[in-house]
């Protein structure tokens, strides 16, 4: 029942080194037409052919959602990762052709909010850039608290401060500055919504603090894309297609299924959206459920797996694919 949106063939129009870790990429349509308008917080999946290995990584769109002339993403180089960000940093240059997905939003602003309170850590700034552009146009109230290791690594901070002045507060680790979260969360009017995007530890800290101060869950929003973790290789039987595949150490189960020519649904490829949920028909071993989607009950039961981020260790794993 999965209905895929059309993919967008793009050309790399610009690559900018933002700082020592981050590069910005601008994509325009190869046919010169307009990109779809999107909503602040949306991401696209970038489809890359890394010397024969297909990589599909999700990145938040950071450009103004109303700018249909092109899309921009910012990519932080992850030297220990599986290679997607390294490929973008090392091999993707202006003029190159790529394919991206239609925008999908798993981190939307709550339209009812009286005020949007945003907390960003490092590269987690990117979804807020498109959200702030949209809010500025519509006159929405927001406040951004942005923390980074150093001023050099605080991508786009100068631009944000220049445009939005007091609405943006910057906190630099190397200057010993830290967000006074307790104070911040205790002075917000009823109807404020809290958003956090950044490293796992920061998301946990913000969500826990908000809960301890009596913030309702439905007013706290976070986004964390999980990079598929690396691990030991493992074998999987695909019952419907009658194939047995081996998942490599730096490959995700979803990628291995795709590489075997078996069609599998997906959207975010980061364990968040639920689209790739697959029935487990047999499991003799341990599934490492790395997703944010399945309930704890489902994880314990080992009847479902999210092949985009989860792995397996043991004798046999049989999937309904």
């Amino acid at each position: 029942m999965s209905v895929g949106a059309p993919k967008i063939p793009v050309r790399v129009a610009e690559v900018v080194e933002v700082n020592a870790l981050i590069k910005r990429f601008r994509f325009v349509r190869r046919d010169g037409g307009p990109m779809p308008v999107f909503s602040g917080g949306a991401h696209v999946v970038v489809d890359m052919d890394d010397h024969g290995t297909r990589r599909m990584n999700p990145y938040s769109l950071m450009s103004d959602p109303a700018d249909t002339s092109g899309y921009e993403i910012s990519v932080r180089r992850d030297d220990a990762g599986r290679g997607g960000s390294l490929f973008l940093h090392r091999h993707v240059t202006p003029g190159m052709d790529l394919v991206i997905s239609s925008p999908v939003n798993l981190f939307p602003l709550d339209a009812r909010a009286r005020k949007h309170l945003m907390i960003a850590g490092g590269i987690g700034i990117t979804p807020f850039l498109s959200q702030i552009a949209a809010l500025s146009r519509l006159g929405g109230r927001f406040e951004l608290h942005y923390s980074a290791r150093t001023r050099d690594l605080a991508a786009y901070a100068d631009d944000l401060t220049a445009r939005h002045g007091d609405k943006v507060r910057l906190y630099l680790d190397d200057q010993g500055q830290a967000i006074d979260l307790n104070r911040l969360l205790q002075g917000q009017p009823l109807g404020t919504h809290l958003y956090v995007c950044g490293p796992k530890g920061m998301i946990g800290w913000v969500c826990r603090t908000a809960e301890s101060l009596g913030w309702p869950k439905s007013a706290v929003h976070s986004e964390e894309f999980l990079a598929p973790p690396v691990g030991l290789p493992f074998q999987v039987q695909l019952a419907t297609s009658g194939k047995t595949i081996t998942v490599g150490p730096a490959q995700s189960l979803l990628e291995a299924i795709e590489a075997a020519g078996v069609d599998a649904p997906y959207l975010c490829r980061g364990g968040a959206c639920g689209e790739c949920e697959t029935d487990v028909l047999g499991c003799d071993g341990q599934i490492a459920h790395n997703d944010h989607w399945l309930t704890d009950e489902q994880k314990v039961g080992n009847t479902k797996i999210m092949p985009c981020v989860s792995r397996f260790q043991g004798k046999t794993l049989i999937l309904d694919r």
């Binding site: 209905v3 895929g4 949106a5 059309p6 999908v104 959207l267 639920g274």
Partner: peptide, 13 residues
């Protein structure tokens, strides 16, 4: 509902 939550832009049903 599960289907619709992932309904995509440009792919009406």
């Amino acid at each position: 509902l599960k289907f619709l939550l992932n309904l995509q832009l440009g792919a009406p049903v």
